[in-house]
Design a protein around this nucleic acid. Sequence first.
DNA 1: CATATTACCTAAACCAGCTAGGTATACCAC
DNA 2: GTGGTATACCTAGCTGGTTTAGGTAATATG
Lengths: 110, 110
Amino acid sequence: MGGSDLFTGTLELLILRTVQETPLHGYAIGKQIRETTSGVLDLEEGALYPALHRLRKKGWLESEWRKTTTGRRAKFYGLTAEGARRLEDESERWAAFTGAVQAVLGRSGG
Amino acid sequence: MGGSDLFTGTLELLILRTVQETPLHGYAIGKQIRETTSGVLDLEEGALYPALHRLRKKGWLESEWRKTTTGRRAKFYGLTAEGARRLEDESERWAAFTGAVQAVLGRSGG
DNA sequence: CATATTACCTAAACCAGCTAGGTATACCAC
DNA sequence: GTGGTATACCTAGCTGGTTTAGGTAATATG
């Protein structure tokens, strides 16, 4: 659903952060991000699931089939130790990047 | 070079903002962004020039061959009226997007 | 005169995200 | 019990911006 296309490269950071505190399954990750951002970020499943597989292959996430509270089966993803480290790195990278963009955007006004 | 790969989609915003006040040529745009951001953003020319052509085709920028202050010939790019409008739109989109990302990142700690 | 800097360009490859499908289970209304 | 919606997962193929990796040419600089 067209509206809000992502700025490439942010998706993995968003996912890592979303499962930082507690493992979640893919569908829940997408829902949570959508709700946390009041719909501004609405992840396509065709982007979300491949990203989860990517992160698992890189060893930043680990996955496990479990039951949800409503009794459905779902694949829960949680941060690995390396994933936690990478989350820090990516957060800093994001901060540096947005800071730099802001430096360009705000050159005159503020 | 390698270090700081862009978050796709930001480049056009950066360019539009950089030529907002006064037209600049491509090489100068790249240099200015690099200097404004202390090297954090270092645009590849292979990304910069195609982006300029794209923006011109979309009618957001107009170009003209002129001489630099040092007597070299260079293609200067300036905002069109539509470009100015789009710059506003893209700035808002950027603000909304980064705000949304921040909402996800900052859920707990701050 | 060799090298660095300025200043431009483009073709090919890469790859993340989008499009657009598909499967299956659970719940709810009619 | 059938149809529709929400949950929950998946993948193949396309698109398109960025990177890679070249290339040309004029002007400084040592």
